[in-house]
Design a protein around this nucleic acid. Structure first.
Lengths: 201, 201, 201, 201
DNA sequence: GATGAATGAGGCTTCATTCAT
DNA sequence: TATGAATGAAGCCTCATTCAT
């Protein structure tokens, strides 16, 4: 990689990292481009060399974040094909990401609303890919009769993601002092869904 | 009720109703106060006799609708004390409200969550009251050994709400054509949680 | 005086008194009509039963204040015709008014600027009458060769008033703790002008 | 001075100059920021790169003009240490500035005093520095027994400034036709104060 | 006379984006 | 590539005044 492209990549990363922080702190609409520029240590105009506009910056941030998340999720699920175990790992993985990078949950929240409402034309494929991993787990569980066949994977998938997402948001928003244990929460949510979806009588 | 207070109440309602429509149509940030005023049939300044500012109008919509929602929920749960049945009714009630008040749901689901103030500063007591109804159901189920004792009602409560909320949002944001059946979703989510929380082996 | 007219007079007085306070506190432009109404204990609209508009209220306040001031001044100067003594009494009287009614100085300041600039058509006759008392003292002093004949009474008059007014303003604006002695100031200003205007070698 | 800083300084000056004109013409409250921008030949928003808001623009005009005034005053007094002569030069200098910069004087005399912030919150250090020059003259005169020792320099200083200020305001606000001679006024005010403060019997 | 809810014009200010350097 | 000063559209909100009761 040449010096120039390295520096370019660095600057782009500086901007997206700054953007994640500022979007998480203030939300998309309240975040000012100049805030992001200042935090990234670049000029306002520089942002427009890497991103078409503020909206594009948000989408890029989201896409990059989701790429990392999805890759990590695949690694976390790699060495087991047991649907039950995979559900557990999904929950644990999601909450570990949230804890290790608090802004993840916030950016997801913001994105979830904006991508559908404000940016009508944008389809958050990466988010769907992430969710579909769970949908696929459900389908596999149903195929192997581990999970009840009458469950709609679509409904289950969104319900599961909603549960994780809401808990993540509450954890992020709570004061450090009365912050609950994410590992415990992960296990409990996983168990509720596993038993809830279970085909066993 | 006197004529004056009736008219006053009416004007406030005119404004909140108009606000819900306009917020749902254009989104909070794109909605102009003058649009809301025109739709309500009042002058721009009149809005500021009832609400501190545009954001306060949004939060007031939330407060008012949550009051109605909570009252309705209590009615829906009134004639049964069976925790299992109450979970079912909670889900059914929630989704029925969403379906019957789509624009209101859209504002509460989407626009409200984009308000930085709502997420970061405002303490949504009304939301907590609504959720605690579910928390209470869990505790009663645990007390009667219907639900597993090792579940944290706090975690379960947020997980359940997150599941309902996320599905509601997907339904609200989806195009009419590919809108899924909320009754089915209500039943499935309720069953997953009921079985998931069940103390039975 | 009938009950009605008494009550009417009372209400008018309530409003002007409130207006003096509010104008002094916040200045003419920053003062809100509703603030004055609240302080007076009347409805906003009531003010418009007694005054044409906000501007008219200011002018009325000023006129009334000046009437009182002028009447008081005449009393204070009544029993002496010695120009030197009258200068002393003028200064003492002015500062006594300021001390006994702090808002006097502030209303004068506000008025002085507004009457000339904002209300071009308004001629503050009452202020001129007040000042002309000093102008007349100068002229009498010149006529009796107590004061130098080459002084322009117009210039001297404004200079004297400016000196009094500025000191009054500084006294009003100063914190109670480091507030200087107005009596001393009155005597010193009077002496400076008396000696300064004196015809004696 | 580099090109950039020159241009920046120029733009700031363009704005303050335009502001003085517009404030003088229409008064602070009637002046629209967009008028000032147009007169300065810049965009509305540009003003906010140099000034916090409209009121800050007014106060900045004050600060900048007082700097110039103070520097000029020091030059005017430079080549004499005779307190009597210095009093004369102070008055002459002050009125010369008023005459030569009528619009600036109008803003400083009239508009500034209508600003509540200026009167109540802002500490006009620059004004005090200007006044203290006179206070110092008094003290020097007292030290050399030219002026009476019993005069409070603080009182004398404000009285003198008040006299100059009030006359300046009357001159600025008067119609051209009946505008009095500022040179005569300067001489008369100076003589009144010199004799008034004189230690001689 | 008294009320105070309602009006609505108008302007200050923000901030995403551009472009000359 | 990088800068950051400049732009200017657009909208929230204030508040003097009115008028139906």
């Amino acid at each position: 990689m040449s010096d120039v492209s390295t520096r370019k990549a660095d600057k782009r990363t500086l901007i997206t990292d700054a953007a994640i922080d500022v979007f998480a702190e203030r939300g998309f609409h309240q975040a000012r481009v100049s805030d992001i520029a200042r935090r990234a240590g670049v000029a306002d105009g520089t942002i427009y060399l890497y991103f078409k506009n503020k909206e594009d910056l948000l989408l890029s941030v989201f896409e990059e974040k989701m790429d990392v998340l999805l890759a990590g999720l695949r690694v976390a699920l790699a060495d087991t094909s047991d649907p039950v175990e995979r559900v557990r790992r999904f929950a644990v993985f999601h909450f570990r990401q949230v804890r290790e990078n608090r802004t993840t949950a916030e950016v997801l929240q913001v994105e979830l609303r904006l991508s559908n409402k404000f940016l009508k034309e944008y389809r958050p494929e990466k988010l769907w890919a992430y969710l579909n991993v769970f949908g696929q787990i459900v389908r596999e569980g149903q195929a192997t009769s581990v999970f009840r066949a009458d469950l709609d994977p679509f409904v289950t998938m969104w319900a599961f993601f909603g549960a994780l997402d809401e808990l993540a948001m509450q954890w992020v928003l709570s004061r450090k002092s009365d912050r609950f244990d994410l590992d415990v929460a992960a296990r409990q949510v996983a168990e509720v869904f596993i038993r809830g979806m279970s085909a066993a009588t």
